[in-house]
Amino acid sequence: MSTATTHDEHHHHPTGIMRWITTTNHKDIGTLYLWFSFIMLLIGGAMAMVIRAELFQPGMQVVDPNFFNTMTTMHGLIMVFGAIMPGMVGLANWLIPMMIGAPDMALPRMNNWSFWILPFAGTMLVSTLFMEGGGPAFGWTFYAPLSTTFAPDSTDFFIFSVHLLGFSR
């Protein structure tokens, strides 16, 4: 998807990794969102595989019950907040400006900022797995300890509502 750069002779912007970190271009950000979403889909999918492997036969074979609950919880959280939401946001980022004939999203820097919160949030979420006592094991609907990892999601909605605002304009 980086082929987009070839069409951009008369603009100066950083290249390499800095291009992706500092970008305010809705297409770059959309690409980032989509790849992030896909990586999370695979991580969440791997967890689903663990769940189905355990449920393949009655009895406990693969993991212990505590880890199983962690898997169901993380699978839910990652799929909802890590895969589907950024996937939708990525599509919106790419397409809505093109569909309505706008040069870019409203508040482009905000747009960049809100993406880069995501990988950190995702890493934080996944890293809880390796902490002492295991990751969250209480279903994706439960309890406060999640609040730290939840926080970025609300920013996610924030950007989504910015999209809607941009759309209505």
Binding site: M1, T3, A4, T5, H7, D8, H11, N25, K27, P97, M98, G101, A102, P103, D104
Partner: peptide
């Protein structure tokens, strides 16, 4: 617009 979409559109 062209495919692939140019870096800046519209």
């Amino acid at each position: 617009i062209p495919s692939p979409a140019p870096y800046h559109t519209f």
